[in-house]
């Protein structure tokens, strides 16, 4: 059976960075995408993240997620203009609902923002081993049980992807049409995927505490690690650049740059 492990071993600059640097980058992506709500700016952030995905040679590993990311972006582009009212540049109306250029731009900005955020997280997982990530979190001062909780969740992602695909096959084999029909029948039929996935995942999570406790897991015990991580000069330089850019983005936002609607996130 195929394996759905996100990490892809490649010899790239991004892979070689310390996991703490990569975590900081993800935090920065969240800051950059959140402070701006203009599509040029959030689009630039997304462009940067996509470039990093390409440079880290992990794009193929994310093929399962492209459809979801594009759907997420489309939903945002369609829904936000309906709810984020305001703006002065009227561009037209559909079924009696009027749209302004600003609300459409805001929808686009949020779409870019969401995709950039999710993609940066996936970039982290495709270029960093879960064990390194766990170690990085403890080195950053996070209590071990919390770091372990995070790493357990990350470990479950490939398992869930594998389960999801198997469930999809199982339901299609019994005639459940998940990919076709009207939007309403698709939504109804998606329960056939979501419910078994939820139940399977819950059963797995239910067994996890028993499995780790039966092997003598003590949450607060002092630990040693086989793996070692080390911040090198290139990491410090990268962190410094990212920090400056994060500070700059906040400064720009406070001065009204990069926004369509100044009063909202």
């Amino acid at each position: 059976m195929p394996q759905y492990i996100l990490y892809l071993d490649r010899d790239t600059f991004f892979h070689k960075l310390d996991p703490r640097t990569k975590l900081f980058l993800v935090a920065c992506v969240f800051i950059w995408s959140s402070v701006f709500n203009h599509p040029y700016y959030t689009g630039s952030v997304l462009f940067a993240v996509v470039s990093l995905v390409l440079l880290s040679k992990t794009a193929r590993q994310l093929k399962l997620f492209w459809f979801g990311l594009i759907s997420l972006a489309l939903m945002s582009m369609i829904l936000w203009p309906l709810f984020r009212r305001g703006g002065t540049t009227y561009i037209g109306s559909i079924l009696g609902v009027s749209f302004t250029l600003e609300s459409v731009m805001y929808g686009l900005a949020v779409a870019f923002r969401l995709v950039a955020m999710v993609l940066s997280g996936l970039l982290l997982l495709t270029t960093t081993r879960i064990e390194e990530l766990e170690l990085a979190m403890t080195r950053l001062g996070l209590p071990y049980p919390i770091a372990f909780g995070f790493s357990a969740v990350f470990r479950f992602i490939p398992t869930m992807v594998g389960d999801g695909l198997t469930i999809l096959a199982a339901q299609q084999a019994r005639g459940v049409n998940v990919a076709g029909g009207s939007i309403f029948s698709r939504l109804r039929n998606s329960a056939a995927i979501i419910a078994p996935l939820f139940i399977t995942t819950m059963r797995r999570f239910g067994e996890l505490p028993m499995a780790i406790e039966s092997r003598g897991f003590v949450p607060m015990a002092k630990r040693t690690y086989y793996l070692s991580i080390r911040m090198r000069a290139v990491d410090y330089v990268t962190v410094a650049i990212l920090a400056v850019l994060a500070a700059l983005s906040i400064y720009l936002r406070l001065n009204g740059v990069g926004v369509v609607f100044p009063d909202v996130i």
Binding site: D163, T166, I167, A169, A170, Q171, Q172, A173, R174, G175, V176, N177, A191, A192, I194, A195, P196, I199, T200, R203
Partner: peptide, 22 residues
């Protein structure tokens, strides 16, 4: 042939019943 169409002739029972029940 699509799996949904094949399902009418060939039924597949998975090892883990939780994959099918919802």
């Amino acid at each position: 042939q699509a799996v949904m169409v094949r399902g009418r002739e060939v039924g597949y029972i998975f090892q883990n019943p939780d994959y099918q029940i919802f």
